[in-house]
């Protein structure tokens, strides 16, 4: 009896929490179907303005190009940072040495510096590479991810070292061991890392804001923040934009979800 009561409480508590978590998503979708005035008043039922809002978004503001830009940025950042960070995580973990551990400590410390202070020197650097106002200028600095290096190193700790040893005995080269033995067996880790990399690149705000200048190279976040910051924004259009910006993230998350917990799991093994 008591047990049942406890479970009832748990279900109620979790349901309320889930409701609060999901409600803003619901309201955002409702908002994309409503006119600006209704959104400000907090209307929570579906309206009929979705097509109008969506048309506005595409025709007046050029949504298509923006989506493509964001996709290009995210895909290259995901590929790049997965390769670079997993190689580094593997290097730090499998070939342990004192000097590399010192380097690793320095790498971790750089997490603490507020990115806002690095914008001007980074911008100067991008000028040297001739990458100002280009998507590659957005992508390259986002590839080395300290968090992902850490994440991969944690995961490789779980990897059975005997397999590596055995492969060496068989005469496989170090790179071959990594690319054709270790990497394919760590799918969950890569999937979790991919979600993380996609999330950070898709949502990046400050750096794209600094480096991108022309409107046809804007990414989704810049687009949204610009939509909302005008003097008289149409909130129906803003909401529709927010929906469009959030959708790819949700799709990626659901597509890779089943690996996700597994992947995170590897990183937190003690």
């Amino acid at each position: 009896m008591r047990r049942k009561l406890v479970y009832t409480f748990i279900y109620i508590f979790l349901s309320i929490s889930a409701f609060i978590s999901i409600f803003p998503f619901y309201w955002m979708i409702v908002g994309s179907t409503n006119a600006s005035v209704d959104i400000i008043k907090g209307k929570i039922t579906f309206g009929t303005k979705f097509i109008e809002n969506f048309k506005n978004l595409i025709e007046t503001f050029g949504l298509g190009q923006v989506l493509l830009n964001s996709l290009e940025v995210s895909i290259f950042v995901v590929i790049g940072s997965l390769i670079v960070s997993s190689l580094a995580g593997y290097g730090f973990e499998i070939y342990k040495s004192k000097s590399r551990n010192r380097v690793y400590a320095v790498v971790l410390w750089t997490l603490m510096i507020p990115p806002a202070a690095l914008m001007v020197p980074l911008f100067r650097l991008m000028n040297v590479f001739n990458l100002i106002d280009s998507l590659w200028g957005v992508i390259l600095p986002m590839i080395p991810s300290v968090f992902l290096i850490f994440f991969f190193r944690q995961n490789f700790q779980q990897y059975p070292k005997e397999i590596i040893m055995a492969a060496r005995v068989d005469g496989a080269s170090e790179l071959r061991i990594f690319f054709s033995i270790v990497m394919p067996s760590m799918k969950a880790t890569y999937a979790a890392a991919a979600i993380y990399a996609f999330m950070t690149s898709w949502n990046a705000y400050l750096w794209p804001l600094v480096i991108i200048q022309s409107s046809e190279k804007r990414t989704m976040t810049l687009f949204i923040s610009n939509l909302a910051s005008g003097y008289n924004p149409d909130f129906g259009v803003v909401m529709t934009g927010v929906v469009v910006a959030t959708l790819p993230m949700i799709i990626v998350f659901f597509a890779l979800q089943r690996y996700f917990v597994q992947g995170v799991l590897g990183s937190v093994k003690q």
């Binding site: 001007v120 911008f123 000028n127 600094v210 200048q213 923040s225 610009n226």
Partner: peptide
Amino acid sequence: SMAKADVEQKLNTILASGV
């Protein structure tokens, strides 16, 4: 077309870095 704060931010960045 940018937000006013963005115009200012970009102008500062671009002028300060001597680009």
